[in-house]
Simulated scan of single mutants.
Amino acid sequence: MPGTLSSKVQGYERRELLGGTLDLQLLPRAAYSARDPLQWQSLGVSLERQQGVHAIGSDRREDFDSWPGTLALTPAGVEVFSESPHGGEYLLLRWLAEPRNLGIASGSRRLQLPGHARALALGRQARRLLLDPNQDQLALEQCALQFAGLATFDKPAAKVARRVEFSRVLTLIDQQYAEPLSLTELAACTGRNELRFLRDFTRAIGMTPHAWLVEVRVQAARRLIEHSDLPLAAIALETGFAHQSHMGSAFRKILGLTPSQYRALSGRRG
């Protein structure tokens, strides 16, 4: 995981919480290559799709495709190597002390659970709190502890029989998020009818197709705000929103900030 980025422009935020017991990080969508020998366990959730190569507890490298909403628990002492050409926004919680000291069970093996709606919701909430220039320490610590409590999950990974079909849907949204996509068009990628597609996608990702499309549009707008001087109205149209106020409403709901506030945080002019 990238560990050297440090500015709001780059989307990286880090806070030590509960007197240094927990380390909460919002890792940005950025290329990285890192090896992480963990002393204590960690828990992470993908906020965006992320593809690359990793090696978990060995030198054997394997391709990975981590979907949004994938919750991953890595116990203490398991070394993780991971690299990605473009990364993907990721919320990572590290224990800086024994989990039992917090009244949380310690994991014994690495687990991944895709489509974890609760983890994704808490990850998005933590992101809003971390980006808030007037951070509420109590709310952030409460959110981090609720997220930490998910480390007790002991369920087998969901079956991946439908990964190829839903991979096509995620790719289509990534490539055509600025277009007026329909449920029928998305369902056609999987060969399902619209109702079954809606149910299966929501189960696989932890969000409805429309909610995920809006999330992708907001993230695309964030990157344009961070790295360009385009007017906000132009960014809204460029990323698939009907108009600037439509984009503003999505920003407030997802990030807790208006686009103008987010631009101010990134050090750019309105």
Rank of each mutant, 00 (worst) to 15 (best):
P2K: 02
G3V: 11
G3F: 14
G3W: 13
L5H: 14
Q10N: 04
L18A: 10
L22M: 12
L24Q: 14
L27C: 13
R29V: 08
R29S: 14
A30K: 08
P37F: 07
W40D: 08
G44T: 13
S46M: 14
L47W: 05
Q50H: 07
Q50P: 03
Q51R: 15
H54E: 15
G57Y: 02
G57V: 03
F64M: 00
G69I: 05
T74C: 15
A76W: 10
A76E: 15
E79S: 09
E89T: 12
L102I: 00
G103H: 01
G103N: 01
A105G: 11
S108I: 13
R109C: 09
P114L: 05
P114Y: 06
R118I: 01
L120G: 06
R128Y: 08
L130W: 05
D132N: 15
Q135C: 14
Q137D: 11
Q137V: 12
A139D: 13
L140V: 11
C143H: 01
A151H: 04
T152M: 06
D154H: 08
D154M: 04
P156L: 07
A158S: 08
K159A: 15
K159Y: 08
V169G: 02
T171Y: 01
A178L: 00
L186K: 05
C189Y: 06
R192A: 01
E194G: 00
R196I: 04
F197N: 01
E215T: 00
R217C: 07
R217Y: 03
L224Q: 08
S228L: 04
A233Y: 07
A233M: 09
I235C: 10
A236R: 03
A236E: 04
G240A: 13
S245A: 00
A250H: 09
K253Y: 09
K253D: 14
G256N: 10
L257N: 11
T258A: 13
G270A: 12
